[in-house]
Protein backbone atom coordinates (compact mmCIF):
# COMPACT_ATOMS: atom_id res chain seq x y z
CA UNK A 1 0.00 0.00 0.00
CA UNK A 2 2.76 2.38 0.98
CA UNK A 3 4.72 1.68 -2.14
CA UNK A 4 1.59 2.09 -4.27
CA UNK A 5 0.89 5.45 -2.76
CA UNK A 6 4.39 6.67 -3.23
CA UNK A 7 4.24 5.54 -6.86
CA UNK A 8 1.01 7.47 -7.27
CA UNK A 9 2.53 10.52 -5.72
CA UNK A 10 5.55 10.29 -7.96
CA UNK A 11 3.29 9.96 -11.00
CA UNK A 12 1.25 12.90 -9.76
CA UNK A 13 4.40 14.95 -9.49
CA UNK A 14 5.34 13.95 -13.00
CA UNK A 15 1.90 15.13 -14.13
CA UNK A 16 0.65 11.99 -15.90
CA UNK A 17 -1.19 9.80 -13.41
CA UNK A 18 -3.42 7.14 -14.86
CA UNK A 19 -7.03 7.75 -13.78
CA UNK A 20 -7.45 4.33 -12.13
CA UNK A 21 -4.53 5.02 -9.84
CA UNK A 22 -5.83 8.49 -9.02
CA UNK A 23 -9.12 6.96 -8.01
CA UNK A 24 -7.12 4.65 -5.78
CA UNK A 25 -5.65 7.62 -3.94
CA UNK A 26 -9.01 9.29 -3.68
CA UNK A 27 -10.65 6.22 -2.21
CA UNK A 28 -7.75 5.85 0.19
CA UNK A 29 -8.18 9.40 1.46
CA UNK A 30 -11.94 9.03 1.86
CA UNK A 31 -11.64 5.70 3.61
CA UNK A 32 -8.98 7.00 5.96
CA UNK A 33 -11.13 9.99 6.84
CA UNK A 34 -14.11 7.71 7.51
CA UNK A 35 -11.93 5.35 9.54
CA UNK A 36 -10.50 8.22 11.54
CA UNK A 37 -13.98 9.49 12.25
CA UNK A 38 -15.10 6.06 13.43
CA UNK A 39 -12.05 5.81 15.69
CA UNK A 40 -12.64 9.25 17.17
CA UNK A 41 -16.31 8.41 17.85
CA UNK A 42 -15.39 5.14 19.51
CA UNK A 43 -12.67 6.85 21.51
CA UNK A 44 -15.14 9.55 22.57
CA UNK A 45 -17.79 7.11 23.76
CA UNK A 46 -15.18 4.75 25.21
CA UNK A 47 -13.40 7.41 27.24
CA UNK A 48 -16.64 8.73 28.72
CA UNK A 49 -17.65 5.24 29.81
CA UNK A 50 -14.12 4.59 31.07
CA UNK A 51 -14.16 7.74 33.17
CA UNK A 52 -17.61 6.89 34.47
CA UNK A 53 -16.67 3.38 35.59
CA UNK A 54 -15.05 4.29 38.97
CA UNK A 55 -18.17 6.21 39.98
CA UNK A 56 -20.42 3.36 38.88
CA UNK A 57 -18.27 0.95 40.90
CA UNK A 58 -18.31 3.08 44.07
CA UNK A 59 -21.78 4.60 43.99
CA UNK A 60 -23.63 1.83 42.23
CA UNK A 61 -27.37 2.37 42.02
CA UNK A 62 -27.07 5.43 44.25
CA UNK A 63 -26.05 7.34 41.11
CA UNK A 64 -29.58 6.90 39.84
CA UNK A 65 -31.57 6.90 43.06
CA UNK A 66 -29.65 9.14 45.47
CA UNK A 67 -30.33 12.78 46.16
CA UNK A 68 -27.21 13.98 48.03
CA UNK A 69 -24.17 15.22 46.20
CA UNK A 70 -21.28 15.53 48.69
CA UNK A 71 -17.62 15.03 48.05
CA UNK A 72 -15.61 13.16 50.70
CA UNK A 73 -12.58 15.20 49.75
CA UNK A 74 -9.48 13.33 50.89
CA UNK A 75 -11.58 10.28 51.83
CA UNK A 76 -13.49 9.24 48.71
CA UNK A 77 -15.28 6.54 50.69
CA UNK A 78 -17.39 9.31 52.24
CA UNK A 79 -18.42 10.70 48.84
CA UNK A 80 -22.09 10.46 47.95
CA UNK A 81 -23.06 11.26 44.39
CA UNK A 82 -26.76 10.82 43.72
CA UNK A 83 -28.20 11.96 40.38
CA UNK A 84 -31.92 11.53 40.98
CA UNK A 85 -32.73 15.27 41.11
CA UNK A 86 -30.86 15.81 37.87
CA UNK A 87 -32.67 12.94 36.21
CA UNK A 88 -36.11 14.08 37.34
CA UNK A 89 -35.26 17.70 36.56
CA UNK A 90 -34.21 16.72 33.05
CA UNK A 91 -37.39 14.73 32.52
CA UNK A 92 -39.62 17.48 33.92
CA UNK A 93 -38.12 20.36 31.95
CA UNK A 94 -38.01 18.29 28.76
CA UNK A 95 -41.62 17.21 29.15
CA UNK A 96 -42.79 20.78 29.73
CA UNK A 97 -40.74 21.87 26.72
CA UNK A 98 -42.05 19.11 24.47
CA UNK A 99 -45.69 19.61 25.40
CA UNK A 100 -45.44 23.33 24.68
CA UNK A 101 -43.35 22.85 21.52
CA UNK A 102 -45.65 20.17 20.12
CA UNK A 103 -48.82 22.17 20.71
CA UNK A 104 -47.44 25.51 19.54
CA UNK A 105 -45.27 23.95 16.83
CA UNK A 106 -48.03 21.82 15.31
CA UNK A 107 -50.27 24.87 15.20
CA UNK A 108 -47.48 26.90 13.64
CA UNK A 109 -46.81 24.25 11.00
CA UNK A 110 -50.49 23.94 10.13
CA UNK A 111 -50.75 27.71 9.89
CA UNK A 112 -47.67 28.03 7.71
CA UNK A 113 -48.57 25.14 5.42
CA UNK A 114 -52.33 25.45 5.17
CA UNK A 115 -53.97 28.39 6.85
CA UNK A 116 -52.04 31.63 6.38
CA UNK A 117 -52.18 33.73 3.23
CA UNK A 118 -49.01 33.16 1.25
CA UNK A 119 -47.29 36.47 2.07
CA UNK A 120 -47.60 35.71 5.78
CA UNK A 121 -46.34 32.14 5.34
CA UNK A 122 -42.88 33.32 4.37
CA UNK A 123 -42.71 35.74 7.28
CA UNK A 124 -43.84 33.13 9.80
CA UNK A 125 -41.56 30.44 8.41
CA UNK A 126 -38.52 32.73 8.39
CA UNK A 127 -39.21 33.92 11.91
CA UNK A 128 -39.28 30.37 13.24
CA UNK A 129 -36.13 29.47 11.33
CA UNK A 130 -34.34 32.51 12.72
CA UNK A 131 -35.05 31.34 16.27
CA UNK A 132 -32.58 28.54 15.56
CA UNK A 133 -29.82 31.01 14.79
CA UNK A 134 -29.92 32.73 18.19
CA UNK A 135 -27.12 31.48 20.50
CA UNK A 136 -28.47 29.61 23.48
CA UNK A 137 -26.80 31.92 26.01
CA UNK A 138 -29.02 34.70 24.65
CA UNK A 139 -32.09 32.62 25.42
CA UNK A 140 -30.73 32.05 28.89
CA UNK A 141 -30.09 35.70 29.61
CA UNK A 142 -33.45 36.69 28.15
CA UNK A 143 -35.18 34.06 30.27
CA UNK A 144 -33.34 35.21 33.38
CA UNK A 145 -33.77 38.95 32.91
CA UNK A 146 -37.12 39.20 31.14
CA UNK A 147 -39.12 36.07 31.86
CA UNK A 148 -38.08 35.31 35.44
CA UNK A 149 -39.48 38.62 36.77
CA UNK A 150 -42.64 37.87 34.81
CA UNK A 151 -42.94 34.49 36.54
CA UNK A 152 -42.66 36.23 39.92
CA UNK A 153 -45.07 39.04 39.13
CA UNK A 154 -47.69 37.40 36.93
CA UNK A 155 -47.40 33.74 35.91
CA UNK A 156 -46.62 32.38 39.39
CA UNK A 157 -49.37 34.30 41.24
CA UNK A 158 -51.83 33.35 38.51
CA UNK A 159 -51.01 29.63 38.73
CA UNK A 160 -51.13 29.83 42.53
CA UNK A 161 -54.54 31.49 42.43
CA UNK A 162 -56.06 28.50 40.58
CA UNK A 163 -57.87 26.01 42.80
CA UNK A 164 -55.21 23.65 44.13
CA UNK A 165 -52.60 25.82 42.42
CA UNK A 166 -50.12 25.69 45.26
CA UNK A 167 -50.30 21.93 45.55
CA UNK A 168 -49.87 21.33 41.84
CA UNK A 169 -47.48 24.08 40.79
CA UNK A 170 -45.71 24.83 44.06
CA UNK A 171 -45.30 28.25 45.58
CA UNK A 172 -43.41 30.75 43.52
CA UNK A 173 -40.18 31.81 45.22
CA UNK A 174 -37.84 32.95 42.52
CA UNK A 175 -38.62 33.21 38.86
CA UNK A 176 -35.98 30.63 38.05
CA UNK A 177 -37.80 27.33 38.03
CA UNK A 178 -38.47 24.07 36.24
CA UNK A 179 -41.36 25.77 34.48
CA UNK A 180 -39.23 28.63 33.20
CA UNK A 181 -36.54 26.22 32.03
CA UNK A 182 -39.18 24.14 30.26
CA UNK A 183 -40.60 27.23 28.64
CA UNK A 184 -37.24 28.53 27.43
CA UNK A 185 -36.38 25.05 26.14
CA UNK A 186 -39.70 24.95 24.31
CA UNK A 187 -38.80 28.09 22.37
CA UNK A 188 -35.33 26.76 21.68
CA UNK A 189 -36.54 23.44 20.25
CA UNK A 190 -39.45 24.97 18.37
CA UNK A 191 -37.49 25.50 15.12
CA UNK A 192 -36.45 21.84 15.11
CA UNK A 193 -39.99 20.66 15.73
CA UNK A 194 -41.49 23.02 13.17
CA UNK A 195 -38.96 22.09 10.48
CA UNK A 196 -39.83 18.40 10.71
CA UNK A 197 -43.54 18.79 11.36
CA UNK A 198 -43.89 21.13 8.40
CA UNK A 199 -42.32 18.48 6.22
CA UNK A 200 -44.63 15.84 7.70
CA UNK A 201 -47.76 17.93 7.23
CA UNK A 202 -46.68 19.02 3.76
CA UNK A 203 -46.21 15.38 2.78
CA UNK A 204 -49.75 14.34 3.69
CA UNK A 205 -51.05 13.39 0.24
CA UNK A 206 -53.24 16.07 -1.27
CA UNK A 207 -55.61 13.35 -2.46
CA UNK A 208 -56.44 12.50 1.16
CA UNK A 209 -57.24 16.13 1.91
CA UNK A 210 -59.46 16.20 -1.16
CA UNK A 211 -61.08 12.90 -0.16
CA UNK A 212 -61.88 14.39 3.22
CA UNK A 213 -63.31 17.63 1.85
CA UNK A 214 -65.25 15.82 -0.87
CA UNK A 215 -67.11 13.92 1.87
CA UNK A 216 -68.34 17.20 3.30
CA UNK A 217 -65.68 17.66 5.97
CA UNK A 218 -64.91 21.18 7.13
CA UNK A 219 -61.38 22.50 7.10
CA UNK A 220 -61.04 21.82 10.84
CA UNK A 221 -62.35 18.30 10.51
CA UNK A 222 -59.89 17.73 7.70
CA UNK A 223 -57.06 18.91 9.93
CA UNK A 224 -58.14 16.90 12.98
CA UNK A 225 -59.40 13.75 11.34
CA UNK A 226 -57.27 13.44 8.24
CA UNK A 227 -54.08 15.51 8.28
CA UNK A 228 -52.97 15.03 11.89
CA UNK A 229 -53.81 11.29 12.07
CA UNK A 230 -52.05 10.69 8.77
CA UNK A 231 -48.99 12.54 10.03
CA UNK A 232 -49.02 11.28 13.61
CA UNK A 233 -46.01 8.98 13.32
CA UNK A 234 -43.90 11.72 11.77
CA UNK A 235 -45.10 14.27 14.31
CA UNK A 236 -44.04 11.87 17.07
CA UNK A 237 -40.67 11.66 15.35
CA UNK A 238 -40.44 15.45 15.24
CA UNK A 239 -41.29 15.54 18.95
CA UNK A 240 -38.59 12.96 19.70
CA UNK A 241 -36.00 14.95 17.76
CA UNK A 242 -36.95 18.09 19.68
CA UNK A 243 -36.81 16.09 22.91
CA UNK A 244 -33.27 15.04 22.08
CA UNK A 245 -32.27 18.67 21.76
CA UNK A 246 -34.05 19.66 24.97
CA UNK A 247 -32.33 16.90 26.96
CA UNK A 248 -28.87 18.16 26.19
CA UNK A 249 -29.33 21.93 26.25
CA UNK A 250 -27.04 23.37 28.91
CA UNK A 251 -26.16 27.05 29.00
CA UNK A 252 -29.67 28.47 28.84
CA UNK A 253 -30.90 25.99 31.44
CA UNK A 254 -28.15 26.90 33.90
CA UNK A 255 -29.37 30.50 33.79
CA UNK A 256 -33.10 29.90 34.21
CA UNK A 257 -33.62 26.74 36.27
CA UNK A 258 -32.30 27.95 39.62
CA UNK A 259 -29.56 25.29 39.81
CA UNK A 260 -30.44 23.71 43.14
CA UNK A 261 -29.96 20.02 43.76
CA UNK A 262 -33.42 19.30 45.10
CA UNK A 263 -35.89 16.60 44.24
CA UNK A 264 -38.69 18.91 43.11
CA UNK A 265 -41.76 17.94 41.17
CA UNK A 266 -43.69 21.21 41.19
CA UNK A 267 -43.06 23.38 38.13
CA UNK A 268 -42.67 26.67 40.03
CA UNK A 269 -39.90 25.21 42.16
CA UNK A 270 -36.25 25.45 41.12
CA UNK A 271 -34.27 22.41 40.07
CA UNK A 272 -31.39 21.14 38.02
CA UNK A 273 -30.83 18.98 34.94
CA UNK A 274 -28.11 16.50 34.05
CA UNK A 275 -26.54 18.87 31.56
CA UNK A 276 -26.78 21.95 33.74
CA UNK A 277 -25.36 20.10 36.76
CA UNK A 278 -22.41 18.75 34.82
CA UNK A 279 -21.61 22.22 33.52
CA UNK A 280 -21.95 23.98 36.86
CA UNK A 281 -20.01 21.41 38.94
CA UNK A 282 -17.22 20.88 36.50
CA UNK A 283 -14.86 23.52 37.85
CA UNK A 284 -14.58 22.06 41.33
CA UNK A 285 -14.74 18.43 40.21
CA UNK A 286 -11.68 18.17 38.02
CA UNK A 287 -9.24 15.54 39.18
CA UNK A 288 -11.47 14.22 41.98
CA UNK A 289 -13.87 11.32 42.26
CA UNK A 290 -16.65 13.83 41.65
CA UNK A 291 -15.41 14.10 38.07
CA UNK A 292 -16.09 10.39 37.57
CA UNK A 293 -19.61 10.85 38.89
CA UNK A 294 -20.18 13.70 36.45
CA UNK A 295 -18.92 11.46 33.66
CA UNK A 296 -21.46 8.86 34.74
CA UNK A 297 -24.24 11.45 34.47
CA UNK A 298 -22.79 12.42 31.10
CA UNK A 299 -22.89 8.82 29.92
CA UNK A 300 -26.52 8.56 31.00
CA UNK A 301 -27.38 11.77 29.16
CA UNK A 302 -25.55 10.55 26.08
CA UNK A 303 -27.41 7.24 26.10
CA UNK A 304 -30.75 9.00 26.49
CA UNK A 305 -29.99 11.45 23.66
CA UNK A 306 -28.79 8.71 21.34
CA UNK A 307 -31.83 6.57 22.14
CA UNK A 308 -34.26 9.41 21.54
CA UNK A 309 -32.54 10.44 18.34
CA UNK A 310 -32.56 6.84 17.09
CA UNK A 311 -36.30 6.58 17.80
CA UNK A 312 -36.94 9.88 16.07
CA UNK A 313 -35.07 8.81 12.93
CA UNK A 314 -37.04 5.57 12.84
CA UNK A 315 -40.37 7.35 13.25
CA UNK A 316 -39.64 9.97 10.61
CA UNK A 317 -38.58 7.37 8.07
CA UNK A 318 -41.62 5.23 8.89
CA UNK A 319 -43.77 8.27 8.17
CA UNK A 320 -41.98 8.79 4.85
CA UNK A 321 -42.65 5.23 3.77
CA UNK A 322 -46.26 5.53 4.93
CA UNK A 323 -47.07 8.49 2.70
CA UNK A 324 -44.95 7.40 -0.28
CA UNK A 325 -46.75 4.15 -0.78
Amino acid sequence: MTSNTSTDLRQAAEGHRPSAASRGVYEYVVLSAAGLFAIISLYFVGSIVWQALPAIRHQGLYLLTGTSWVSGGATPALSKFGGLSMITGTIETSLIAIVIAVVVGTGTSLAINLLLPSWMRTIAATTVELLAAIPSVVYGVWGMLVLAPLVISTVGPFLNSLPGGNAVFGTVVAGQSLLLAGFVLAIMVLPTYVAISREVIGAVPHELIEASLSLGATRWQTIWKTILPTGRVGLLGAGALALGRALGETVAVVLVIGQVNQLNFRPLQPGVTLASWIASQWGEAIGSDQMNALFALGALLMAASLGVSFISTRLVSRQRSLVNR
Binding site: P205, A211, L215, G216, K225
Partner: peptide, 30 residues
Protein backbone atom coordinates in the same frame (compact mmCIF):
# COMPACT_ATOMS: atom_id res chain seq x y z
CA UNK B 1 -70.12 18.07 -1.05
CA UNK B 2 -72.23 15.72 0.97
CA UNK B 3 -74.87 15.93 -1.77
CA UNK B 4 -72.30 15.46 -4.55
CA UNK B 5 -69.82 12.71 -3.79
CA UNK B 6 -66.53 12.05 -5.53
CA UNK B 7 -64.33 9.08 -6.39
CA UNK B 8 -60.80 9.82 -7.49
CA UNK B 9 -58.44 8.48 -10.11
CA UNK B 10 -56.20 6.70 -7.62
CA UNK B 11 -57.88 4.81 -4.78
CA UNK B 12 -57.41 7.06 -1.75
CA UNK B 13 -58.85 5.43 1.35
CA UNK B 14 -57.69 7.05 4.59
CA UNK B 15 -54.60 4.98 5.40
CA UNK B 16 -54.83 5.38 9.18
CA UNK B 17 -58.47 4.28 9.30
CA UNK B 18 -59.96 0.82 9.27
CA UNK B 19 -62.31 -0.38 6.55
CA UNK B 20 -65.27 0.40 8.81
CA UNK B 21 -63.97 3.85 9.73
CA UNK B 22 -63.41 4.66 6.07
CA UNK B 23 -66.93 3.61 5.20
CA UNK B 24 -68.49 5.86 7.84
CA UNK B 25 -65.99 8.74 7.65
CA UNK B 26 -68.35 10.96 5.67
CA UNK B 27 -71.23 10.35 8.07
CA UNK B 28 -69.01 11.21 11.02
CA UNK B 29 -67.93 14.43 9.31
CA UNK B 30 -71.62 15.20 8.97
Amino acid sequence: RSRIGMVFQRPNPFPTMTIYENAVAGLRFN
